[in-house]
């Protein structure tokens, strides 16, 4: 309880700070203008969405390895939040693409990869909904969680060779040297922290809810019918 409460407090505080910095502290971009501020929402959503899918993969392996129900609950919760974040990322991306490139959508590697990623984990949620309930759904989903995550870099490679007109990433191996001003970098980092904390809080809440759902179901069999 206290862990979840403090995660809520942390993500709330960081979220307010990120919002304030996005609009009051970070300077307006010289080229892209005001629309560039959506960057502080869009990119953290993408990164944390990806983190969520990594959590799905790790917990899927853990579930198949140990058979622990808790791992499965975390994987399921992370997949739901990952799909939510990725959906928001695609929407904010389109909102940004229109003023920046003049189109809602382009077949750039990042966009293509994100879209396929989104489909992958929507399929994951569908598989869980349509498979026989209980362990079967959990095992199927775990296998897909592993296959899907291994697929991501391959999708990215294919999409990258295929077409390349997206601006370079600002973080990670493909980062451009000092692409952002220091104040922009700080805002960006605070924003990433805020979304990561939000993810952690949602994950803890959703996992706990799943645990209670299962427990309730069990009690129904123990004390209810039969």
């Amino acid at each position: 309880m206290t862990v979840r409460m403090s995660l809520l407090g942390l993500s709330g505080g960081l979220m307010l700070a990120a919002l304030g910095m996005t609009f009051l502290y970070a300077p307006t971009d010289a080229v892209l203008g005001i629309s560039q501020r959506i960057f502080y929402v869009h990119v953290p959503l993408a990164l944390v969405g990806f983190l969520a899918f990594a959590v799905v993969a790790v917990c899927s392996i853990g579930y198949l390895w140990k058979g622990s129900e808790r791992m499965d609950n975390v994987a399921y919760a992370a997949a739901e939040i990952g799909v939510l974040f990725t959906s928001l990322m695609l929407i904010t991306g389109m909102l940004w693409a229109k003023p920046a490139w003049g189109v809602w959508w382009s077949l750039s590697p990042q966009l293509t990869t994100s879209l396929i990623l989104w489909f992958l984990y929507v399929a994951y949620l569908m598989l869980r909904a349509y498979a026989p309930p209980g362990e079967t759904a959990a095992r199927y989903a775990a296998v897909l969680g592993i296959i899907g995550f291994i697929d991501v870099p391959i999708v990215y490679m294919a999409a990258r060779w295929w077409r390349d007109l997206h601006p370079n990433k600002v973080l990670g191996p493909l980062a451009e040297e000092s692409a952002l001003e220091p104040s922009m970098q700080i805002t960006f980092l605070v924003s990433i922290l805020a979304f990561t904390a939000l993810f952690a809080w949602l994950l803890a809440e959703r996992t706990e809810l799943r645990r209670q759902e299962t427990q309730l179901e069990r009690m129904r069999y123990t004390y209810g019918q039969a």
Partner: peptide
């Protein structure tokens, strides 16, 4: 043996 929450 349980199937989901249902004990058999």
């Amino acid at each position: 043996k349980r199937f989901g929450a249902r004990p058999v």
